[in-house]
């Protein structure tokens, strides 16, 4: 019952493209209840209504953050990550560069897609000392 070698699974992460200067985050939004979804769906996860492809804002508010300092396959520690609630939804997981997590409650903007395929965000606007989580 050992599995044979299989191709890697479909990438379940938020879909985004970058033209080198701007990032476009794509997903689906319900035409009835307007629920935003980053997972590939054929019906709304909330109300099972019809969905249509859409783009989402690249700016939002940091909801929580941390820096992982242990070995994780495909990622070189340390790496900081954050949940960012994009304006109008949804909430996405982003990498934020370096090892200092962004402070919850501050603004961030998705600026790139990393070589590993992850969203990369930066503080939106000048960084003050208070914006970096202690």
């Amino acid at each position: 019952m050992s599995p044979t070698v299989q191709p890697p699974p479909a990438d379940p992460r938020t879909r985004a493209t970058s033209d080198g200067t701007a990032v476009t985050i794509t997903g689906w939004r319900c035409t009835a209840c307007h629920y935003p979804m980053t997972q590939q769906v054929t019906a709304c996860m909330e109300c099972r209504g019809e969905v249509e492809e859409t783009t989402f804002a690249t700016e939002g508010e940091v909801w929580a953050s941390t820096c992982l300092r242990v070995r994780v396959p495909g990622h070189q520690p340390p790496f900081a990550v954050a949940y960012v609630v994009l304006d109008g939804g949804p909430r996405v997981l982003v990498h934020t560069g370096g090892d200092q997590p962004l402070a919850p409650g501050t603004r961030a903007r998705v600026v790139a897609v990393s070589e590993t395929g992850d969203l990369v965000a930066e503080p939106d606007g000048p960084v003050s000392a208070q914006e970096v989580a202690s």
Partner: peptide, 13 residues
């Protein structure tokens, strides 16, 4: 196969 797992969010994270 998990969106956040693929992005490196291990359980300590």
């Amino acid at each position: 196969t998990d969106a956040e797992g693929r992005a490196g969010l291990a359980l300590p994270g």
